[in-house]
């Protein structure tokens, strides 16, 4: 069983949803990312998403855009990102790692070698924002061969007829983009989730994670009442961005602040007490 499947199975047994914090690689430097990753599982992260910076992130709001620019300045490449994952895996063989980014850097690296190297480094899944199912075959084939889950995105605009096609051959989990908008801007209402998540569930047996606009423990709890996991990105990045010194380095103590924030989000998710117990 893959790490992703094992983790969602464990969450189901515990009768709760999971928390997926997002970290942009090398924001603002590699050491920060490594320290954060090392601390996340202990702070309550059930899965971890690592952002692969790109110069032109068209689905991201200003917070993640700036994190990407800091990441690139901090030396992020796909090679460095995979190296960071390799380091994380030396101490943690259970927490699933999903890489999220845009297609061009992967194309540039080479789709086949990237899948080989990512899988060997201990990556479990890929989310490629600008690769809809219509164009995904080129990546889906080598990802399948190397046992990487290619996580499919579903949006509020994905109508019923399209939903089936989007989820055809999906694996790992389904990522529900809960708003029509870019990351870190609006927040979906619980009413929306109550209506939307069952619609997705009706089309798949895979776990459903919800992202875009989940900022507080209360939002995370609301998501956890309806979905299987909550993804939190911009709220954590905002904390980092607010704690940079004039040279762009992270101020001392900030990693602990972010991990405390993750603990609070995890408490929100765990306190929601819903679940679809097995």
């Amino acid at each position: 069983m893959s790490r992703i499947a094992a983790r969602f199975a464990a969450l189901r047994r515990e009768g709760r949803a999971g928390l997926i914090p997002f970290v942009e690689a090398c924001d603002p430097d590699r050491a920060t990312t490594e320290a954060l990753l090392a601390g996340l599982p202990g702070a309550g992260a059930d899965l971890i998403e690592i952002g692969m910076p790109f110069t032109d992130p068209m689905a991201d709001g200003p917070t993640v855009q700036r994190a990407g620019q800091r990441g690139l300045k901090g030396g992020a490449t796909l090679g460095v990102t995979l190296d960071i994952v390799r380091g994380f895996r030396r101490n943690d063989d259970a927490t699933p790692i999903v890489l999220m980014g845009y297609y061009n850097p992967i194309l540039s690296y080479g789709v086949e070698p990237f899948c080989d190297d990512a899988s060997a480094a201990g990556v479990d899944g890929l989310i490629v924002v600008d690769l809809p199912p219509e164009e995904a075959e080129e990546l889906a084939v080598p990802a399948g061969r190397t046992r990487l889950d290619l996580i499919r995105l579903v949006a509020p605009t994905t109508h019923a007829e399209r939903l089936k096609a989007v989820l055809q051959g999906a694996s790992g989990f389904v990522y529900y983009v809960s708003i029509t908008g870019i990351t870190g801007t609006r927040t979906a209402t619980e009413e929306h989730l109550r209506e939307a998540i069952p619609r997705v569930r009706a089309a798949t047996d895979l776990p459903v994670a919800v992202g875009f606009g989940v900022r507080t423990p209360e939002h995370a709890a609301a998501v956890a009442r309806h979905a299987d996991a909550a993804v939190v990105a911009s709220a954590l990045i905002d904390t980092m961005a607010a704690n940079l010194d004039e040279a762009g380095r992270l101020k001392p103590g900030t990693i602990d602040t972010v991990l405390d924030q993750v603990r609070a989000l995890a408490a929100g998710v765990r306190g929601a007490r819903v679940g679809r117990a097995a």
Binding site: A59, L153, T157, R162
Partner: peptide, 20 residues
């Protein structure tokens, strides 16, 4: 029909935009 000129072109957009 999928917008390709040889290997070029296509529709590489986020799912939110795809239906549009």
């Amino acid at each position: 029909e999928r917008g390709h000129f040889g290997i070029f072109g296509g529709r590489y957009v986020a799912e939110t935009l795809m239906p549009l």
